[in-house]
Design a protein around this nucleic acid. Structure first.
Lengths: 128, 128
DNA sequence: CTCTATGCAAAAACTTTGCAGGGAT
DNA sequence: ATCCCTGCAAAGTTTTTGCATAGAG
């Protein structure tokens, strides 16, 4: 998987800025926020966000808001869902198949919020 | 279901402002944003948001960000998930049981993003 | 040349914080 | 008397917009 194949037939010029964004997201194992990305990116935030809008319109990347109120971006290399711990704000990719039938809907991504096993254990220790 | 039973044993004084917020959310069939609520609420936004933080800490209400970048609040009367259409931004409550086993996790709510049947049909008509 | 992409600065949208006054116990 | 709650104004955070310049085809 490479950025040329991703942007193929999508009407997206692969500028230096766009390549930089896509390459980092492609290499990353987890979704990244603008804050995570900005030090590695040599571009203005306006350019970043404008390109993000383009990528999302073209269904090249997807984003979701995490517990820390920041938006996280990713290229979905394989179909997966996300678990967000509302206690420690950790984001986990869930590769288990979550199957349910919402007939007629196109499902793009699934966000599950709750408490992760680690935080659940800590809670038990503190309050029991 | 009433607000007194909801706040029972939760260390939350039921002030006028708090009753107002909870009553509206309790009556509503769908999640509401601050913008949806503000005209019906006679309080400053600071008071609103401070109380929301309290309610969330007490697990009385939950919130999620929708496609319009706004935060939507609700009291979960019955366990359900939400579907957000990234095309028309509509929020739907999904009462179907989504079953998968994430052992060790506490799951509080599930957000599904995609395209709703109406928007899918419109897309087909425009582009086929 | 024309169209698209970029940087910079300013603005926008939503939420939070500081502080001082009010109310309840 | 203390503690919690509130309003107002100001600040904070993330994202978007306007405008002028630079670059690609």
């Amino acid at each position: 998987m490479n950025i040329a194949s991703i942007t193929n037939n999508k009407n997206i010029n692969l500028t230096t800025a766009r390549k930089a964004i896509l390459n980092i997201l492609l290499d990353s194992k987890k979704p990244l926020s603008y804050e995570d990305l900005k030090d590695s990116l040599d571009m203005d935030k306006a350019t970043f966000y404008r390109n993000i809008i383009k990528f999302e319109e073209a269904n090249i990347i997807s984003s979701f808001e995490s517990n820390d109120k920041k938006r996280y971006f990713e290229i979905q290399k394989t179909k997966h869902s996300h678990f967000i711990c509302t206690s420690c704000s950790q984001i986990e990719c869930i590769h288990e198949n979550l199957n349910f039938n919402l007939t007629g809907y196109r499902i793009d991504n699934i966000l599950i919020k709750g408490i992760c096993p680690d935080c659940l254990l800590k809670k038990e220790k503190n309050y029991d």
